[in-house]
Amino acid sequence: MSRAQEPHRPFPSFGNPFRMISRKGSNLSPKLHALLNTFEETLAGRIKKLKPAGKEDVLRLSWMRSAMESLCGIHSDIKTLITALELPVCDWDDKWIDVYLDNSVKLLDICIAFSSEISRMKQGHLFLQCVLHNLSGDSSKQLVRARSSLDGWKQHIASKNPRLDNCFAAMDGLAQTLDLPKIKNSAKGKVLMRAMYGVKAVTLLVCSIFAAGFSGSAKKMMDRHVPETCLWAEAFVDLQTFVNTEIRSLYSSGRVTVLKELEAVDTGVKKLYPIVQDGVDPVEAEELKNSTTDLEKSAENFSGGLDQLAKEVDNFFQIVLSGRDALLCNLRVGGNVSDQVRPSNNVEGPMVR
């Protein structure tokens, strides 16, 4: 996307971002080398912390919240780097600005799609609340209502969210511009573009994982090859291989969902459904009570996990939006791009309420 009130310009051809900074013959000063190394080492540390402790933690809502929290940190790190580089907006090449603005729109679209899916699952939780409410009584009518709500839950969760298609399209667009513009005469620009490459690579990985979990398919998962010269490359490949392999394994085994808390709810629903289907005799009363308690616990964990994840997705949306606003503001006034614009309280993000 081009700057405001300017006609859209096609992206320039992109080159290999790893020719920008070579170990031999580099024209970077010791200060710039130190800034870049610090950024990449910090990025490597954030990626290492993201690797789940075990396979059972892959696509657990608490892990997804941590992943989104890490993205917030990574995108804040790039703002800190820009400030440290003291790179005024007048020194930014038009093609850098176009790529940044276009990518920020795609990231906002992805956040909106994720928030939409979280909201859809939260709406499904209402069916569970109805089930639990009706099972608190013992009349046959309440059992019929509970069964109807269980049917509603299953139909709702099985439905597809069309907004996820926008998410996949946005990720494809980001992947196509992963390689960054060639930098000829700006040492600071080389550092900035190299750092932005790392940010985009990790962002794409996390978004790809989220999309696979939300969509019920691993077909759109991305396996990205990154050069070993990046200080974060080893941690990136380790995380990507571990998580992607596990998600593909889960889907290949016939799983309908790979979100752990959702899977727990689904298990509880399947256990409860045959009990309420034909009425409950005295022999099954205790089993009904235990199954209801189990479903109540899993539904509570599911709802709480969604709330926390929604908050982090909204935080990420605000960080991306504030960075975009800062750049646009400084383009208008000709200031320094490192002057950050804090989002005002009335800026509406994709928060799920």
Rank of each mutant, 00 (worst) to 15 (best):
I118E: 02
E228A: 14
A233H: 06
G304M: 02
T229R: 10
D151W: 09
S76T: 13
I110D: 00
N244Y: 06
V58G: 05
Q123P: 00
C207N: 14
V206Y: 06
F214D: 00
K24I: 11
A285K: 14
L108V: 08
E246V: 02
L126N: 03
I110S: 05
G323C: 03
K49R: 15
G279Q: 07
L250A: 08
S253K: 13
N185S: 04
S303R: 11
G268E: 02
V276C: 01
I118Y: 07
S149C: 14
L259M: 07
K270R: 13
R60V: 07
L132M: 06
E263K: 10
N346G: 01
F18Y: 13
Q340R: 13
L71I: 09
C90R: 14
S26R: 15
G268Y: 03
G25E: 11
A169P: 00
H156R: 00
N244C: 08
S76E: 15
I247L: 10
M20L: 15
V352A: 05
L126Q: 09
R23P: 01
D151T: 00
E40S: 03
A326M: 01
M171T: 09
L135G: 08
S215E: 10
N103L: 06
G323I: 00
T42F: 09
F18N: 10
Q318W: 03
I247H: 02
K154P: 00
K79T: 13
H133S: 09
N16H: 09
C90Y: 09
L262Q: 11
D314V: 03
E263R: 13
